[in-house]
């Protein structure tokens, strides 16, 4: 039973990591990354590390996602063209 759960969590880890990079949009990516962190927390719990699981859940899933969303918001406001690698 535990092994089946473990396999499911490992598969979800790979899938969420894959989709975090694969999605075209940035917001879906950030949500997928948040799911990745949550799955990681679950994995830590299965590996008998509740201390690390709490830390990963609060830091990875909540705070990290928050700052990712801040960054995405800051970078998606339309700006005038120019810049780039031209001086």
């Amino acid at each position: 039973m535990m092994d089946v759960l473990h396999f499911a969590v490992l598969t979800m880890l790979l899938a969420t990591a894959f989709f975090a990079i694969w999605f075209k949009g940035l917001l879906p990516s950030a949500i997928s990354l948040s799911m990745f962190s949550l799955m990681m927390a679950l994995e830590f719990y299965i590996l008998q590390a509740p201390d690390v699981a709490i830390a990963e859940a609060s830091i990875g899933a909540a705070l990290s996602t928050t700052i990712y969303i801040f960054a995405i918001r800051a970078c998606s406001k339309p700006r005038k063209a120019g810049g780039g690698d031209k001086q």
């Binding site: 990354l33 990290s64 960054a71």
Partner: peptide
């Protein structure tokens, strides 16, 4: 660049 930052996060995790 934000995707690259996500890659770094996955690497660390």
């Amino acid at each position: 660049l934000i995707k690259i930052a996500m890659a770094i996060t996955i690497l660390g995790s």
